[in-house]
């Protein structure tokens, strides 16, 4: 049988791995059904608006304020999670201590917990009369029902992403690398910045991207602690639901959604490019 030259097999060579056509076809159909079609529906829905209407909706001051909070808080939370997630992963990988398994299991809890439950307990905890919020009252710091509350919620839900992406890389990292650096005269700080950090950067970036993406889209755990004060502590997903959908303004809701979608896509694309660049720098792609 001669190998046919086709779209899926442009070189006409017989492949060693079978089923390329089938698996690619399945992948594309599945991706379309599950991701692309619902997303394009968002765009199609907005076409019922004129450009002027669209612009008026997405650039309303109250909506713009939510973009700032949503993306700002998500970025800040992801950044904080990178630092503390790395520390957490480091302790879990490098040290053994009683209850380590328990801590390891606790990391995943924000994944599993219904977000509304998380939201209610967080707001109870950080309210001015709550355990933690009460401690901050003397310093004049309010967490619940402020942008700070949004940040706290996003840090909470983002932790597992960083820990779980960095952990396996850290486990693979031989302690010999650090010993080699030390025997060559490097101090701990130099070993960390010159030897460990460059190797961990791609994983940290992935963790950052995941935590950020989750933070931007997070709804359940945020709305309780945020208090949803217009222009102060309203997040974009909330605007979509409360002020648009609940008033049967579907096109308005999708207009805001489109902006959110584009923003998120752009930022994730940037992070991906950054990752590709850092991988190339470490010689992983030949």
């Amino acid at each position: 049988m001669s190998a046919a030259v086709s779209f899926f097999n442009p070189t006409g060579q017989t492949r060693v791995l079978p089923g390329f056509g089938l698996s690619l076809g399945y992948t594309l159909v599945y991706l379309s059904l599950v991701v692309l079609i619902p997303l394009s529906a968002v765009f199609i829905q907005t076409t019922s608006l004129t450009w002027a209407e669209f612009w008026a909706i997405v650039s309303a001051p109250r909506v713009v304020a939510t973009y700032k909070l949503s993306f700002g808080a998500a970025l800040a939370a992801a950044a904080i999670n990178v630092v503390f997630g790395l520390m957490l992963a480091w302790s879990l990988v490098r040290y053994s201590f009683p209850g380590k398994k328990l801590v390891d299991a606790l990391i995943d809890l924000p994944f599993a917990l219904p977000t509304a439950v998380a939201g209610i307990s967080l707001s109870a905890l950080w309210a001015s009369n709550g355990w933690l919020g009460g401690l901050l009252v003397p310093f004049g710091i309010k967490v619940a029902f402020t942008p700070l509350g949004v940040l706290v919620a996003l840090i909470f839900i983002g932790v597992p992403f960083v820990v779980r992406t960095v952990q396996p890389v850290l486990e693979d990292l031989e302690t010999e690398l650090e010993e080699a650096a030390a025997s060559l005269g490097a101090h701990r700080r130099q070993t960390f910045t010159r030897v460990l950090l460059p190797v961990l950067t791609p994983a940290l970036l992935t963790g950052f991207a995941l935590a950020f993406a989750r933070g931007v889209g997070e709804y359940g755990s945020v709305i309780f602690i945020a208090g949803n004060i217009p222009m102060v502590s309203e997040i974009t997903p909330l605007i979509i639901i409360i002020t648009k959908l609940e008033q049967y303004d579907e096109s308005g809701a999708t207009a805001v959604a489109v902006v959110m979608l584009l923003f998120s896509f752009l930022m994730l694309l940037t992070i991906n490019l950054l990752q590709a660049w850092s991988a190339k720098r470490t010689g992983r792609n030949r």
Binding site: E176, S183, G185
Partner: peptide, 30 residues
Amino acid sequence: RERQVGFVFQHYALFRHMTVFENVAFGLRV
């Protein structure tokens, strides 16, 4: 760090994100 011993590991322990040149230069740069 202060013993001034050169140590060679069984599994090389080279810094994989550095070129060969930078690996050798490491001890001088730190």
